[in-house]
Design a protein around this nucleic acid. Structure first.
Length: 652
RNA sequence: GCCCGAAUAGCUCAGUUGGCCAGAGCAACGCUCUUGUAAAGCGUAGGUCGUGGGUUCGAAUCCCACUUCGGGCUCCA
């Protein structure tokens, strides 16, 4: 028979040849390295027979598919180790994930793993790997599979959901959606261990080994809180020792950027336990950065035709009944406060209040689009276990805007919003974006289908008009309307969801908002919700990690620290500071009895953009010695020149 | 909320199987020193060992509860 390779060339193979035979025919190196094959788009085991005319791609360990296979197979080895070490335990699912894998188990007597167990498991896994156990595929009917998995309730549940026999498995995104139910496949590694799996897998466990078990955690079966909690073990796995080391190194580097660590070190803000979970206080050095961020945001909004408003943090529950929040968002709201004239709630969003502002007085079409802007602080009840530094917090300030416009204005408004958002994100140092369009969640929405379609269409067309590629996220929208979410990539390639533009045909209706049109008719405005940095707190956390604490000069809490070489130069140093402050910069004197080297160290560790050292030469010549962050020391820079340079550098 | 783990001085951490006044480095403060680019010297002060209960002759250490923090809670057998 003949098969075709990805480069278009053809190979003649004997009938019944496997993918491995093909690899061997091409070369011994490939025969040794190949893990699986891709035939006509689907992945198969290396020992699977090929058919005449197939297009075959051999997958090597360093490819995406290869890594995925290694991770998936390593998960199986993990399961084998755990089932051996904990007799009577059972297993659920063990997929490959980004950079690694996990496997979920239930231990006898509801036992749990502890960190110490990882070492034992790791050792057992390595002995399985040393044994070079083959992954041998077999297929059987669902009935036979159920029998084989006797005593493994989760595997049986999977068989039932795969074969459609389990109506409780849920809908839509459930496991059963894309899996054929006629045949159940298994992979046997040894007499003792067999796991149900679609595969494919590496030929034998000897292809594995560059892995590390990372942590244990609880995980609900099927991710649902009404289901039992399983014990999950996470690991990472790679094709080479070097790649594994690199990954572990990357994790360390990311940990160094952790905003919680840097915020404490740089004295930016803190989360005092006396305050309660998920609530932060901003220290002077963090607050100045926040103020600069907010000032910039305000200035841009002013230029962008927004009008500023202020609204309270608290409102009568009737407002949130009108808005629908008590029906659809109650889980995210703080519990009610009973007061003499009603029940009050902390506001979880600013939109209802902005609707009240719109509602005051009769609006004319001439006033639209009306763009209301507020740095509005909201409070959301995030579940205790989900709080995470500044990134998930219970009280935060949104750079929130609600735009009321006519149907005709909608397209242009969304289009210009996209420009506005991207321009501001770029100012903060982000220039790689991805766009997601979230559509209606059929279980949680208000408004008619027609209205949703209209709004979704408007957002999609705005993205198209900009030539922006986007992914559609079915069912991800808020209850009141579809949205565009904008993710940014940070300096080390991580993705963060920041901005959101949401169309809303619902709130104007609930608040019965109208404007008087050309023809004297009252018409319903369309509303756009738009947060740009999102939460100021969260954005600040992302910025810290993006810059690793090295804020660009325009945002740095202190831009220049001036260090006299000795006390005799203190007066001059003070003059330099005064000149810089006069020129509008944030400059500080760093004089103390500490030696110069020590003070430089302190200034450097504070990540100050410019450390100026001044001594005799500088007094004589009116210069400074500039030690810029990340650059070379330059002696004898005229103060005026330095100020000029700094002005350029501090431009946004 | 649920699973695992953590909480000792401002920070980073020691503290052996429960047993003399709980330690170190850095930071702070005081004194001394004072000339050019990433840690000067000496000294002082600082902790009800997260909070509350319990076990014990005796608890930072063991048990329980609470608080806060960290890692997770279907990126498809």
């Amino acid at each position: 028979m003949q098969v075709q390779l990805p480069d278009g060339s053809e190979r003649e193979l004997p009938d019944g040849a496997t993918a491995y035979d093909l690899a061997a025919d091409i070369g011994p190196r490939l025969a040794k390295d190949a893990l699986i094959a891709v035939v006509d788009g689907s992945e198969i085991d290396l020992d699977a027979p090929l058919t005449d005319g197939a297009v075959v791609e051999l997958v090597t360990p360093d490819s995406e598919r290869g890594l995925h296979t290694i991770r998936h197979s390593t998960a199986h080895v993990l399961a084998q180790a755990v089932l051996k070490l904990w007799p009577g335990s059972t297993f659920a699912i063990g997929p490959a994930i980004e950079n690694g894998f996990y496997y979920d188990f239930a231990l006898p007597n509801n036992d749990t793993f502890s960190d110490d167990d990882l070492e034992k498991i790791d050792a057992e896994m390595r002995s399985i790997i040393d044994a070079k156990q083959p992954f041998v595929r077999s297929e059987m009917s669902p009935d036979e599979a159920l029998q084989l998995m006797e005593g493994h309730a989760y595997k049986q549940a999977i068989i039932r959901s795969v074969t459609g026999a389990d109506s409780d498995a849920g809908s839509g995104n459930d496991l059963s959606t894309e899996v054929s139910g006629d045949v159940i496949s298994f992979y046997r590694n040894s007499d003792e261990f067999i796991d149900m799996c679609v595969g494919p897998h590496v030929p034998h466990t000897g292809h594995l080994g560059h892995f590390a078990l990372q942590r244990v955690s609880g995980a609900y079966w099927r991710g649902r809180e009404d289901q039992p909690m399983l014990q999950r073990i996470y690991g990472t796995a790679w094709h080479s020792k070097k790649a594994l080391k690199q990954h572990l190194h990357n994790l360390e580097e990311a940990a160094k950027r952790d905003h919680r660590k840097l915020a404490a070190e740089l004295d930016l803000l803190s989360f005092p336990s006396q305050l309660g979970g998920g609530l932060a206080v901003w220290h002077p050095r963090g607050a100045i950065v926040r103020k600069l961020m907010e000032d910039y945001s305000r200035q841009r909004h002013e230029e962008g035709g927004y009008e500023f408003v202020f609204t309270p943090h608290l409102a009568n529950g009737r407002l949130f009944e009108t808005s629908g929040h008590l029906d659809f968002y109650a889980d995210g709201m703080y519990p009610p406060m009973e007061m003499d004239n009603g029940t009050y709630y902390m506001k979880p969003m600013n939109c209802p209040m902005h609707c009240l502002i719109f509602d005051h007085g009769q609006k004319s079409y001439r006033e639209l689009p009306l763009r209301l802007f507020e740095l509005g602080t909201v409070y959301r009840y995030e579940r205790a276990g989900t709080l995470h530094g500044l990134l998930r917090i219970r009280g935060f300030t949104q750079d929130d805007s609600h735009i009321y416009c006519t149907e005709d204005q909608l397209q242009d408004e969304i289009a210009s919003l996209l420009d506005f958002v991207l321009s501001i994100l770029r100012a903060f140092g982000f220039d790689e974006f991805t766009f997601n369009l979230s559509t209606k969640n059929p279980d949680k929405f208000v408004g008619s289908d027609e209205i949703w379609e209209l709004a979704t269409d408007a957002l999609a067309r705005a993205l198209d008009r900009h030539g922006l590629e986007y992914e559609v996220k079915e069912g991800d929208a808020a209850f009141y309307g579809p949205k565009i979410d904008i993710d940014v990539k940070d300096a080390i390639g991580r993705s963060w969801q920041l901005s959101t533009i949401q169309a809303d045909f619902t709130l104007p209706e609930r608040f019965d908002l109208t404007y008087v049109d050309h023809d004297g008719e009252r018409r319903r405005p369309i509303m756009l919700h738009r947060a740009l940095l999102g939460s100021i707190e969260r954005f600040f956390g992302v910025l810290i990690e993006h810059y690793a604490g090295n804020f660009p000069t325009w945002l740095a809490p202190v831009q220049v620290q001036v260090l006299p070489v000795a006390d005799a130069h203190r007066d001059y140093a003070e003059q330099v500071v005064a000149r810089l402050v006069d020129a509008g910069f944030r400059a500080e004197l760093l004089a103390s009895s500490d030696p110069l080297g020590k003070r430089i160290r302190n200034a450097k560790m504070a990540k100050t953009p410019h450390v100026l050292v001044v001594g005799d030469d500088d007094i004589a010549a009116g210069t400074v010695g500039d030690n810029p962050r990340g650059g070379q020391v330059e002696r004898g820079v005229a103060l005026n020149d330095f100020i000029g340079r700094l002005s350029d550098e501090a431009q946004i």
